[in-house]
């Protein structure tokens, strides 16, 4: 079985701030990581590989700075990693992003299952996975937390409101994987050292992907960001209740009573 895991590298969400005057993101000093849900997607793929054998390839679109993170994915057990990188890809919204990734998958060829995280921690639109599936013309099963392959078909359990459903689809298929549905493995120490020192990341630019400038990046985007703004938080009283346990309980009771 040939599996591709689409991965994004995202800044750690809790470290990102907005510059109050320029209204741009302050990126200095912000650490980045493999998008958490994508790690769950990778773990799910590696699990299937453990059971059925096969190959797991990590695919990402972004700047060369993604390299150490993709090497980490290889250290975790991915067989190969490919970075789609070109200045022309910059500024892409979900439409060209899903297109570019789909073109990478097409170039790889003969892929059975494509895994994505359900969404990313920076923008969190959840739209890239269905977009890729549509570009490839294959079925999608989103918000998946459990998967098995039976008789050449995928059976995946996906979360719906109030419960779940199990969907069966023929291969090839795209799955978006629920954040937190498994515990991503730690990289093996020796494999990590090998990945860092010897593994060579493949980088494909727009020519190698066979796409034109008009099909990718900002030019091919349907949406633009007009501005960024700080989410205004409600003003709170911030009153500390101090005293003996009895006094604290007494005061809390007084507040809660109004709502009983």
């Amino acid at each position: 079985m040939r599996m591709v895991v689409c991965v994004k590298v995202t800044p750690k969400a809790e470290q990102v701030r907005l510059d109050p005057t320029t209204k741009t993101l302050i990126r200095e000093g912000v650490e980045s990581e493999i998008n958490p849900a994508d790690k769950n997607a990778l773990e799910m793929a590696l699990n299937l590989k453990d059971k059925h054998d096969g190959e797991v390839i990590v695919l990402s679109m972004g700047p060369p700075a993604f390299e150490p993170h993709l090497k980490l994915a290889v250290a975790m057990g991915a067989d190969d990693a490919i970075l789609l990188s070109d200045r022309a890809f910059a500024g892409a919204d979900t439409y060209p992003t899903s297109f570019t990734l789909a073109m990478g998958i097409k170039k790889l060829g003969n892929v059975d299952i494509i895994f994505c995280g359900e969404g990313s921690s920076d923008a969190g639109t959840n739209q890239v996975p269905p977009g890729i599936a549509e570009w490839l013309g294959i079925p999608q099963i989103t918000f998946v937390n459990k998967v098995e392959v039976v008789d050449g078909k995928v059976r995946a359990r996906r979360t719906i409101r109030g419960g779940y459903e199990v969907v069966e689809a023929p291969l090839p298929v795209l799955l978006s994987v629920e954040l937190g549905c498994n515990t991503p493995r730690f990289p093996d120490f020796r494999r990590k050292r090998w990945a860092e020192r010897e593994f060579r990341l493949k980088v494909w630019n727009k020519n190698e992907l066979g796409v034109s400038e008009e099909q990718v990046g900002l030019k091919a985007s349907y949406t633009t960001v007009k501005e960024l703004k700080e989410a205004k938080m409600r003003e709170r009283k911030g009153e500390f209740i101090r005293g003996s346990p009895e006094q604290v309980t007494e005061k809390l009771l007084e507040i809660i009573k109004q709502y009983l």
């Binding site: 969400a13 701030r17 921690s121 920076d122 960024l228 703004k229 989410a231």
Partner: peptide, 14 residues
Amino acid sequence: PGFGGSILAVCKCV
């Protein structure tokens, strides 16, 4: 909402 909800991106379909 992006980055955990602390920042809002105002978007439009051009």
